[in-house]
Nucleic acid binder design. Structure first.
Length: 277
DNA sequence: CATATGTCCTGAGAGC
DNA sequence: TGCTCTCAGGACATAT
């Protein structure tokens, strides 16, 4: 499940395609339902061919490939989407192939479950669809106190609010649990009940956890789905404090076992000992 | 308006 | 062995 660290790793991994020209776009045939490509495939291909890649951005959990002519390819990996420069994990789930002329000659989009989407947008559409109205401040660019300002009146549980991309962009289910553990905050606590000290600790924990996870190139869980652009595993799964560690002793207090609860149909992992407030 | 739920999709694993 | 069922959770649409 690519969240900010995995998507940032993708962004860094494909930087070498900047300057390349798109020679062709293809869609490998397979038995799977085609993923959503906007506009429809033939037109998407036609509008990309002969354009030059001018930059790569990350906006929350999305990759934006900038093209000449004020166009942008917005890629949402969602659960299992990957950008690859190397040999794919398998060929059954290859969805889109870009043939390039430049330092890198091919880029692939691979997606096992096929929930990912790829959209071509003009600059004005990009500003609308991924602008501040639709996407909160990036979790790695947060200014002190900004999160508190945005959430302090909400009655939602803090864990649920951290997943709201309009409130803050880039945090998903895995890193929300990890962040709250570092911040020593109870995941079910309503936002409006957090103390100033807790908001402060949350700011620090967001930066600490996400920076650490980017350094390890993200998390590859036991299903092995997430891969770097060179089809290698991330390393941060070996440093998770609570995620998928139900029943194991808390790495901080050692006193209590990690628990799993369900919030908004998503698993949350936490320590009832040191996250009691 | 804020918040909650349903939907999409595939493969893995459980249970019979 | 092979069938059916449940589960995982990104973003968005729809409901309360």
């Amino acid at each position: 499940m690519p969240e900010l660290p995995e998507v940032e790793t993708m962004r860094r991994g494909i930087l070498a395609i900047v300057g390349a020209e798109i020679v062709d776009v293809g869609y490998p045939a397979n038995r799977l339902k085609p993923i959503a490509v906007t506009p429809p495939r033939a037109q998407f291909r036609k509008r990309l061919v002969d354009r030059v890649i001018s930059g790569i951005q990350r906006r929350g959990k999305r990759i934006v490939i900038d093209l000449t002519g004020h166009l942008h390819v917005v890629i949402e990996p969602r659960m299992t989407g990957l950008l690859l420069l190397a040999e794919p994990p398998d060929t059954d789930h290859l969805r889109v192939r870009w043939e390039l002329r430049g330092a890198i000659e091919q880029l692939w989009f691979w997606d096992r479950r096929g929930l990912g989407t790829i959209s071509l947008m003009k600059s004005c559409q990009l500003a609308e669809r991924l602008g501040p109205e639709r996407l909160g401040p990036d979790a790695l660019e947060l200014e002190a106190g900004q999160l508190m300002e945005r959430l302090q009146t909400s009655r939602r549980a803090i864990k649920v609010a951290l997943l709201d991309q309009r409130a803050i962009a880039g945090i998903g289910n895995l890193y929300a649990s990890e962040i709250l553990h570092v911040a020593r905050i109870r995941p079910g606590k309503p936002c409006c009940e957090l103390t100033r000290q807790q908001w402060q600790r949350l700011d620090d924990a967001i930066r600490l956890v996400l920076t650490e996870a980017v350094r390890y190139e993200g998390s590859t869980l036991s299903d092995g789905t997430y891969r770097t652009v060179l089809n290698r595993r991330g390393g941060y799964q070996n440093h998770h404090r609570v995620y998928m560690r139900e029943g194991q002793p808390c790495p901080r207090c050692r006193g209590r076992a990690i628990r799993r609860i369900v919030q908004a149909q998503r698993s949350t992992f936490w320590c009832p000992g040191c996250q009691s407030r």
